[in-house]
Design a protein around this nucleic acid. Structure first.
Lengths: 329, 329
DNA sequence: AAATTTTGCTAAAACGATTAATTAATTTAT
DNA sequence: ATAAATTAATTAATCGTTTTAGCAAAATTT
């Protein structure tokens, strides 16, 4: 016995498929189907274990009830957690989520967006890569709902959900200052992405406030050579002339590699040097290291809320949501 | 300008949609379309930026070129990494992946499978939950390709990809023995899932071999109350009469919580007590703790290979693939 | 009683592709 | 020159649903 279609139900009861469809979509009031028949159809559908064919539905209606999620790397815990909450929340609206990875390559991002477009997703939630703005603009031009997440492009107005990177970084840096640090190094990505710059600006602003800013303490690392870059930077900073007494790592990946290097060099945290990280690292003894905690569940929820709203009600002026990130000590 | 359909191409050149479809699907030899026209159609399609409508295709052909992935929890790094590799590999076959979470609840697993069925996925890769065998059997009855991953049900024959849990655990336990441990505790899930039992059996077997097996050193924890359970177990074991000198944690989550508790109790690893974990914990100082490393990329690859093969070539006798897991010291 | 409105349902055309069956034109074989 | 085979395209049905327009019968209004 193959799949049960609307036609099977219709012919079993002896009505038209139109009537069945109307009833099963709750439009029986509008279509004026009698109470009795309505009930009978619903019961028959249930007893025959009818499941609507999503493709037929999507083809006819033009909506797939699917959201495309594009992240840098689903195996990164930050994005994995985001994905988890996005899915759980989307599920409540009846939306499924297709997750894809860019691996921080704009080329791959374009490819993934194209695949998702082919899959006719109703809307996108995207953590964009550097130089990925063209791709986003194209989606805008095609009037496809997009919510940017975690990162955004200041030059193009679009819906965005993220955290207040600037103030979070400032607070993080100030925490090190309060602990007495005078020479605080920053390790961050070499990127034009705004959220990274905001994190840097927060750090700079905190230090400039008390005349401790020194540009030589900022080290930029490349995504593609991250391990070597961080190892080298940490080594230089530690062994160099500046007597570094604090580190601010601007992402979980950077933190993880940086702390590993420190451990390797037999530098104890926080005894020998203080550190603060952006994002949590899953670690059994992380308890001693303060970190900036982004409200991941809320970020996911907001992104879903917005994209679903755009899908359903069209595109008024874009919103730019900046959530507060807490410093956990 | 809306989407370009096959009809648009056809009418632009002045041919039938059938011809266009034939050419665009590489069946022009079969359908005997002239070389010239063939070329012209391909060029026009490209210039008009034609993207086939997946739903129409899926509706007509009955295949969605989508794989449904059901994992316990995508925010768990082990599953996140699996998901990553599954996606990357599926992409090479032209398949998209829809990921869903069960949160270890068989009810939710059923719901997710049902959603994915409604989405007409061509095949499933499933990390099943305890008591989830009925759901898998139903898929078998409906002749929908399923590959079980990480866990399986011995009572139902189905495709499966996992690791040799028994020997991996045995090796892990033997490592502790080699380090001189005499009282090795096991912390594992209280579950009927076979893979967990295999891990326990490996541990038991290693200890029984040298007469060190003591059932009181095995502690089972519940998924829903995992933190309290582990904390209590660790505390009991450490403070109890048995002078525990080793721990074997059977999953990454258990390891993480267990190690955190040890740290809290000021027990140093590996000075005061030796430990070995199943799965890697993302941690900057994990370097000192030996762990069983599952070949995640290979597991993902195999699972995709099998499910795609089943989709394309039907269902011969199920395969049961057990990969070797390495002990990383 | 005729005209109008409401009620309850159906017919049929989409949506965008695929594909078996045909047709028409040309080439080859007899 | 006629029949057979090959080549090159088209027609039309189909997948399962949604939805607009329309039709008859019943109920209501005038």
């Amino acid at each position: 016995m193959g799949r049960v279609s609307i036609k099977d139900i219709a012919s079993k009861i002896g009505v038209s498929t139109a009537t069945v469809s109307l009833v099963l979509n709750g439009k029986d009031k509008l279509g004026r189907v009698s109470e009795q028949l309505s009930k009978k159809i619903r019961e028959t559908a249930k007893s025959m274990n009818y499941k609507p064919n999503g493709f037929a539905k999507a083809l006819r209606s033009g909506r797939s009830e699917t959201i495309g999620l594009v992240v840098a790397d689903i195996s990164n815990p930050f994005f994995a957690h985001l994905a988890f909450h996005i899915q759980e929340h989307a599920d409540r609206y009846g939306y499924s989520v297709i997750i894809t990875n860019t691996n921080e390559s704009p080329k791959k991002m374009e490819k993934m967006v194209s695949i998702l477009k082919y899959r006719q997703v109703d809307g996108f939630i995207i953590v964009p890569t550097e130089n990925g703005s063209r791709c986003i603009e194209e989606l805008h031009e095609n009037k496809i709902p997009v919510v940017l997440l975690d990162r955004y492009f200041p030059e193009i107005p679009s819906d965005y959900v993220g955290v207040d990177n600037f103030h979070a970084s400032m607070k993080a840096t100030e925490h090190l200052l309060k602990l007495g640090c005078k020479k605080i190094a920053l390790i961050t990505y070499k990127t034009t992405l705004r959220h990274a710059q905001e994190r840097r600006d927060g750090y700079v602003s905190a230090l400039a406030g008390c005349d401790l800013y020194d540009s030589r303490l900022i080290k930029e690392v490349n995504h593609s050579t991250i391990v070597e870059d961080i190892n080298r930077s940490v080594q230089e900073l530690i062994l160099g002339d500046n007597k570094i007494d604090g580190f601010f790592f601007t992402t979980n990946t950077i933190s993880s590699i940086g702390l590993k290097k420190l451990k390797e060099m037999q530098i104890n945290v926080p005894e020998d040097i203080k550190t603060v990280c952006f994002d949590k690292i899953e670690s059994f003894d992380f308890s001693t290291i303060p970190f900036v905690q982004q409200p991941i569940p809320e970020m996911g929820k907001q992104a879903v809320d917005i994209v679903v709203d755009r899908i359903r009600n069209g595109n008024p002026s874009p919103v730019h949501i900046e959530l507060k990130a807490e410093l956990i000590v």
